[in-house]
Structures are given as structure tokens and as C-alpha cells.
């Protein structure tokens, strides 16, 4: 079991926004300075708490994008309560509260066995933490990341994912619009996209409910062991 998951009571702690980086037109990565951050496993999340002047409180959960330190990538959800604040209003130097890390299931615990990561949209975030932890560990495990996005403009971490890295294969699956010259026609993820993956492998699938349902069903149909497919679903609302 995760050391971080059993260290006892998770207390709220102040987190100061230290840096901001735009990922797309509607998402940005926030780097927080959190004193005494205990470290985390890639795939874990934090709870964020915002308090208004009159004491009103809102809480949400966000996956950690970083392998070390606290980085969250926030997709602005139209009509959302918390994400527009984090994506648009919060400025470097501002403080929020968070607690974590949380979660002991959707995590990569290292090792050298093959790993398949399949992300849809903002579901890339916890998978990116795994990709970064894989690099930090030397890249010994064969990793294959399949990342489904609408258009090239919707790709998070684009420059970082374009860098060649030992042990990591990255496949972008565009659903609406592909870059010029891209071999695969735009479309939703299908059996052909998943047929060539390593098997057996530890599979991590994260994205909207429909994407995760479709992908995990395809993986099972292709012969992957359901017990080795870990999923995390983003509901239609949230953020």
C-alpha cells in the first residue's frame, strides 16, 4: 500500500501559487509551493478548498500532473464553480488550501513491466504524472501513452510529449481535426488503435465516462485482463 495513502490524517494546508503556464486556450498548469509536501505517487490527487469572504466553502478534487511537487492542470469548465476561479482568477502569490495526496489505486508504483496509458482530453493529467515519474526513474519500463484529443490545439504538455524519451512511445489520436500529413484520419478511439499494444500490461485509462467505458471495453475484448485495467472517470459535471 502507498506510504502516502496511510500516513494518517490528511490536514488542510496553505498552498501558494508560484507559477502559471498556459497549456491550451482553456487550460493552465498551476505550480504551488506547499511547505512540507510529503511527496506522492503518480496518479494520486489532491482536494482543493476555496473559501469566500463570508465563509462559504467549495471543495473539488484534482489530479496531480507532476511527479514531484504540486502541479495541477485546470481545464476551465463553462459554468463551473471552482475551475473558472483557478483557471482565470487566481494569481501568482495567492493562497488556496489543499490536502493530500489521496488515492491508492490509480497509481503507478514503478517497476519494469509494460504499461499502457490511455487518456482522453483532460484525462491526460494523472497519466502525465506517471510519464514524468517514469522518466525520473530512468525509463526502464516500456511505456506507451495513447492520448485522445479533439484537435492539435487541445494537446496539453505538447512540447514535453514531443521530446523523444527512452522507453516512452506517445501516440496522439485526434478525434475532430488532425495536423496536416497525419496518417490516422480523425475519429474516436477504436480497436485498431489498441490492437498493437503490449499484452499483458498494466493499463491506466482516464477520461470522460464514455471514453473510459469504450476504451476499457475494447481492452477487455482484445484480451487484456480486467483486473489489470485501472480506470478513473471524469463525470459530465464537476470542476
Amino acid at each position: 500500500m502507498a506510504r502516502a495513502a496511510v500516513r494518517g490524517r490528511l490536514t488542510w494546508t496553505a498552498a501558494r501559487l508560484a507559477a502559471v503556464r498556459d497549456e491550451t486556450a482553456s487550460a493552465r498548469t498551476l505550480t504551488f509551493a506547499v511547505p512540507d509536501w510529503p511527496g506522492h505517487l503518480p496518479g494520486q490527487h489532491v482536494d482543493v478548498r476555496l473559501t469566500a469572504e463570508d465563509g462559504y466553502v467549495a471543495e473539488r478534487s484534482y489530479s496531480l500532473a507532476s511527479a514531484e511537487g504540486v502541479e495541477l492542470t485546470i481545464q476551465r469548465v463553462p459554468d463551473g464553480e471552482v475551475s473558472p476561479y483557478l483557471a482565470d482568477v487566481l494569481e501568482v502569490g495567492d493562497e488556496i488550501e489543499l490536502r493530500g495526496p489521496v488515492g491508492g489505486w490509480f497509481v503507478w508504483r514503478g517497476g519494469t513491466g509494460p504499461v499502457v496509458l490511455v487518456g482522453g482530453g483532460s484525462g491526460i493529467v494523472p497519466l502525465m504524472a506517471m510519464v514524468r515519474a517514469h522518466r525520473a526513474a530512468g525509463g526502464a519500463a516500456p511505456f506507451h501513452l495513447l492520448y485522445s484529443v479533439r484537435t492539435p490545439r487541445d494537446v496539453y504538455y505538447a512540447a514535453e510529449l514531443a521530446e523523444p524519451r527512452p522507453g516512452l512511445e506517445v501516440t496522439l489520436l485526434y478525434t475532430r481535426e488532425a495536423p496536416p500529413g497525419h496518417a490516422r484520419p480523425p475519429g474516436r478511439i477504436g480497436p485498431d488503435d489498441l490492437a498493437g499494444l503490449a499484452r499483458p500490461a498494466d493499463c491506466f485509462v482516464c477520461g470522460p465516462t464514455g471514453f473510459v467505458e469504450a476504451t476499457s471495453t475494447l481492452l477487455v475484448d482484445l484480451g487484456h485482463d480486467p483486473r489489470r485495467i485501472r480506470t478513473e472517470r471524469f463525470g459530465p459535471t464537476g470542476a
Partner: peptide
């Protein structure tokens, strides 16, 4: 004591 988030109003 909670930290007040500047400019956060919420939906309440």
C-alpha cells in the same frame, strides 16, 4: 482558520 480566497464568490 481558513484562508479566504481573494475574489472567490462561489455559487452557494
Amino acid at each position: 482558520m481558513s484562508i479566504v480566497s481573494r475574489g472567490f464568490h462561489g455559487r452557494r
